[in-house]
Amino acid sequence: MTSGKRSVAQMKPGEVAVIAELEDDFISLKLMEMGCIPGATVRFNFSAPLGDPICISISGYELALRLEEASSIAILN
């Protein structure tokens, strides 16, 4: 296990973090266009009742994504 590297998928409701990098090339371009760029503040709002997808706040709006996509967004902690 790499030294405690976390992704948005592991955040808890209400937690705020800063995006470190995007690890999935295909998805990252789309995520960046939607405002998920390294250095941006991300807040984990809540997850869907079945645990997936999740809702985050980014660039001042709410974005829904699946855990698969969320796990490609590494955060600083």
Partner: peptide, 11 residues
């Protein structure tokens, strides 16, 4: 086409 969900939740 890879299936993904990146969707704005509008107010």
């Amino acid at each position: 086409e890879r299936s993904f969900l990146i969707m704005e939740l509008p107010t």
